[in-house]
Write a protein that binds this DNA or RNA. Structure first.
Length: 670
DNA sequence: TCAACTATCACTTTTGAAACGG
DNA sequence: ACCGTTTCAAAAGTGATAGTTG
């Protein structure tokens, strides 16, 4: 079966159907939707963090790590919902998100593999109730539930793979069932959440690290409900979601179209509110992840959000009056800029003596390890350059076929069903977020033009690979019960937790490097962050710097790297922000991370002197607390990590068809 | 009593296998 | 036998609604 998934180069690029959604519509101006949830944010987040990046004198010094961008492709749809107050249904059996997260990535090394993760963290510490037409905080949030991370089913895939298509997380499901065994993301009802997307360089499944880029799109915040509270949201969902066509008054036509959507001629939600919202500028803004010269193509050619757009964010639809939790939160004028989370999530690297060269690939961590790209068989799933060695021939098992078959399956992210089809207007979906004012940051955020359009400084030295762990000594053993089948030839690095990570329970997996990668399929599952009564690690502003964890790459480290056309595309892309960069002004319910892949306290301190003097802003998105990405689970502690997936494979036989989850809890999933 | 939750319904889209023809 | 297209039924997703729960 020849598919574009296998050969992304056959894709139509930016003109693919999925890429065309809503490009003919401008995002509406926005009124504050959610309560500014963090008053202390401005103070908690170092202002230098948002400072404009220094303009490199020598463009040649720019490395790819400086260009990782993520664009919320259906940002305008999200903004429509956000302008009303996005509600997400959660059910016991799990409910998909609508709108879904449709993303475009650029700036990745085409030859390196990356894992994409989705997690959803509490946006604040309040429970909400819909009263008087608006959401009001009515009390303290429930204890935090086990955090699960949804692994994009394509993971790991090459940068070329991710960049060649729209990345959709529509398979992720939300549930309020705390005993969920399906690997869905467990959330509390009537709480406000913020999705995050993490791009993790993965040399192999057990050897993550080398770089992590986390992206937060504030407009994707939502309040979980078991039944819609706001009629406007219901209306929007019905008009936007193809599955809800049956509830439209006249089939494919919009409900109350003549009133609310006078210009609509189809069922595209994206255009639903165009008549009610001011039209945004057609141009979009790109926000590179890390230091990029202002003169770079991805930047200079991109218009800075017009301040006028932010001056009149009043939507036609009366905004919901959210309590002003974040009255002093910084204003983000160009709000689709994701809160940048970091890039400093690293893992221990294998010792130089790692005898498994076939597992190695181009590395970007010159200071800690060197990976070599070797010729290999190109996996159908990781098309492109063949930088990723296929499982050695010595690794023959009955599961091999399973893996291959899986790799040949059409990738789920090709499904676009969760988003309405674009209307007859074929103009590109407006990716611009320039006019979007994120509610939570509306008031005091610095000028987006100076904030988001400026690359963040990267004064941090090449990070050493480390396993970020909490200092609480929580259990840190973890497994990957739900690794997609094509991830099986990945192995853990020889983890050698140091004294700083006493709880790390990773066995020395160097033998994996010596032995062929296991090819057994990983049953999809989820990693769950176990709920805990222990307090959440306090946020440490010092670690909230936009420091890229992506190791510096020597120019030769990416022999196959190619220019990424998307970097110059006028789209709304955002630089990654450091995980934990968001101040924890409103401490969330306590939890006990079993393993913290990234922890602020472990991040290199940012030397203020390295920051540009012109650094203006104080914070981008202070609206939610810092939640490090935590990966951990050990459903079968008796098995060494490399074999647990075999155990699970034997039990279940098939990977979860809708993606994989990292379940940090002790519960077995799938 | 009421807010929140759950199961069920009708309707829709999606998906994949089977049928068909070249 | 192979390949591509079409057809169709099952699976899955959707909001609405009535009933249940605490």
């Amino acid at each position: 079966m020849l598919t574009m998934e296998m050969y992304p180069s056959l894709a139509l690029g930016p003109q693919r159907i999925g890429d065309c959604f809503y490009r003919d519509r401008e995002p509406p101006a926005h009124m504050p939707l959610f309560p500014p949830a963090c008053d202390v944010a401005p103070t908690g987040l170092p202002s230098r963090m948002l400072g404009p990046p220094p303009v490199p004198n020598n463009p040649a010094n720019k490395t790819q790590k400086d260009e990782v961008n993520m664009e919320l492709e259906n940002a305008s749809l999200w903004k429509q919902f956000s302008s009303v107050g996005t509600e997400m249904i959660i059910t016991k059996k799990g409910r998909r998100m609508f709108p879904g997260l449709k993303l475009k990535l650029s700036g990745l090394n085409p030859s390196l593999r990356y894992i994409l993760l989705l997690d959803i963290i509490p946006a604040d510490n309040s429970r909400y109730r819909f009263q008087g037409g608006s959401w009001q905080p009515v009390g303290k949030a429930e204890a935090r539930l086990p955090d699960r991370v949804f692994i994009h089913p394509d993971s790991p895939a090459t940068g070329a793979h991710w960049q060649s298509r729209t990345i959709s997380f529509h398979y992720a499901k939300l549930t309020n069932n705390t005993l969920d065994s399906q690997g869905h993301i467990i959330l509390h009802s009537l709480h406000r959440y913020q999705p995050r997307v993490h791009v993790i360089e993965a040399r192999d499944v057990l050897r993550w690290g080398g770089g992590q880029h986390s992206f937060v799109f504030p407009e994707t915040q939502f309040i979980t409900v078991t039944a819609y509270q706001n009629n406007k949201i219901t209306e929007l969902k019905i008009n936007s979601n193809p599955f809800a066509k049956g509830f439209r008054e006249d089939g494919m036509n919009m409900l109350n179209q003549s009133v609310i959507f006078p210009h609509r001629s189809d069922n595209i939600a994206e255009s639903a509110y165009t008549s009610t919202f001011p039209t945004a500028q057609a141009t979009s803004t790109s926000f590179p992840s890390v230091p990029l010269p202002q003169s770079s193509s991805s930047f200079s050619s991109l218009p800075v959000p017009d301040s006028s757009d932010t001056s009149d964010p009043q939507p036609s639809i009366p905004p919901i009056n959210y309590p002003s939790i974040l009255t002093s939160s910084p204003t983000l004028s160009s709000s689709t800029t994701p809160s940048l989370q970091q890039t400093s999530f690293t893992f221990p690297t294998p010792p130089p003596s790692n005898p498994s060269p076939e597992l190695l690939m181009s590395s970007c961590s010159p200071t800690t390890n060197t990976y070599h790209t070797i010729p290999e068989t190109i996996s159908p799933h990781t098309p492109g350059d063949g930088s990723f060695p296929a499982a050695p021939s010595t690794c023959q098992s009955g599961l091999q076929d399973h893996i291959s078959a899986h790799s040949l399956l059409p990738q789920p992210n090709q499904s676009l069903q969760d988003e309405p089809i674009t209307n007859e207007n074929n103009s590109p979906c407006d990716q611009s977020s320039a006019v979007f004012i994120y509610p939570n940051t509306l008031h005091t955020n610095p000028d987006p033009a100076s904030v988001t359009a400026q690359p963040l400084p990267n004064p941090a030295p090449p990070p050493t690979l480390q396993c970020g762990l909490t200092t609480q000594g929580a259990s840190t053993s973890f497994a990957f019960p739900s690794i997609p089948p094509h991830m099986q030839n990945l192995s853990f690095a020889n983890v050698s937790p140091g004294p700083a990570h006493p709880a790390l329970h990773l066995p020395n997996l160097s033998h994996q490097a010596q032995a062929p990668p296991l090819s057994a399929a990983f049953p999809s599952s989820s990693f769950t962050h176990p709920s805990s009564s222990l307090p959440h690690p306090s946020f440490q502003p010092s670690s909230c710097l936009a420091v890229s964890s992506t190791p510096s790459l020597p120019p030769t480290a990416h022999p196959q790297s190619i220019p990424n056309p998307s970097t110059s595309a006028p789209t709304t892309a955002y630089p990654p922000v450091e995980i934990g960069a968001i101040p924890q002004f409103n401490p969330p319910a306590p939890y006990r991370p079993d393993m913290v892949l990234h922890h602020p306290s472990l991040l290199p301190q940012l030397d203020p002197s390295c920051l540009p003097s012109s650094t203006p802003p104080t914070a981008l998105y202070p609206a939610f607390p810092s939640y490090p990405l935590r990966l951990c689970q050990d459903p079968h502690p008796s098995l060494s990590i490399p074999f647990r997936h075999l155990y699970r494979q034997h039990q279940h036989g098939h990977a979860h068809p809708q993606g994989s989850y990292l379940d940090m809890s002790s519960r077995a999933v799938f």
